[in-house]
Nucleic acid binder design. Sequence first.
DNA 1: TTAGGACATGTACCTTGGGACATATCTGAG
DNA 2: CTCAGATATGTCCCAAGGTACATGTCCTAA
Lengths: 179, 179
Amino acid sequence: MSLRHGLLGLLAEGPASGYDLARRFTEVLGSIWPAQHPKIYAELGKLAGEGLVEVESEGPRRRKAYRITESGLAEVKRWLTEVDVDHTMRLQPLLRSLFFWLMDAEDLQKHLAAEAGFYSKLAEQYRQYAAAKDRGDYGYSPQTQSLRVTVEAGIRLYTALADWAEWAQTVPPAKPSTD
Amino acid sequence: MSLRHGLLGLLAEGPASGYDLARRFTEVLGSIWPAQHPKIYAELGKLAGEGLVEVESEGPRRRKAYRITESGLAEVKRWLTEVDVDHTMRLQPLLRSLFFWLMDAEDLQKHLAAEAGFYSKLAEQYRQYAAAKDRGDYGYSPQTQSLRVTVEAGIRLYTALADWAEWAQTVPPAKPSTD
DNA sequence: TTAGGACATGTACCTTGGGACATATCTGAG
DNA sequence: CTCAGATATGTCCCAAGGTACATGTCCTAA
């Protein structure tokens, strides 16, 4: 049930349409909290029904912008401070790593190299955003400060995974004979 | 659809019952690929229906141990080498971090301290397992070697998150006036 | 002027995951 | 002997996520 709070949080920055929110979810949140537009529109409808958001304006092309209400804002804040954090991490790459012993050495090296490349690239993207932010490119609003903190987590996580994939390539294959 | 392959991978190490597998999923995989027993039993039933696993033996207390079949083994290997890795990462703590600007400074510090503690603890647990493995406590089978690699990822990820949460506590609150 | 493409919203369906609940079987402590 | 607790398997339902598909609106370039 975090999509709900994700939407409320984004709307706390200012009014936005489902389309805007979907774009933000794919651009900014793509790698940490994916969400598709059908779910976003549906959830916005529910939130409006519960009075947590309201239609701010209707624009061209049937565009409907939503604004967060007082109770919506209270709800995000309640979630942030009172609801337990869900630390679930469902990482397929790590699940796969448990089964590396089933792969032959060549496939494994290829796999790890590809993974390392993938993570390095992402880490680099986040690093560039962070550099731009630190140069002042995006101003110093509280919102961008928080985004900067999130980006830092992205940098550290993806760097850690990239380093791990590099390291894993250096782990010698097992010696089944000694077991 | 990774539960399926997670089960096949674990069964590739040797026969096990649904109960055994559920335990392994909560113990070893708890933080990287959670799975509840109802889903595991259901999936084992499907896998048996498709001939990817078969009942190896029936024991006391209605215990049914499953063994992976040739085609089951082929299927895990196919998955490992031919199917694209799903890099989806759904991290609620990072989603929350986007909205830190909505929290007051005191709540945020408390939150970050708790997060740092949580991740440090997990990292430490993984570090201890790694140390035991490196001492040779679990032998040198290919399976435990792979587990060691997975554990290394856990160490690095949780350490990165712990460091991040520590670092975030030092980030000065935003200056809304300058924006 | 008309067709393609971006903008914008939605419905329908299917799969996956989580939680509640039910039940059978065996062991060991008192 | 009996009852608590661990072992072991399962059903059922709901919530959440993903994909495919459908539709309407506006702009712009050929």
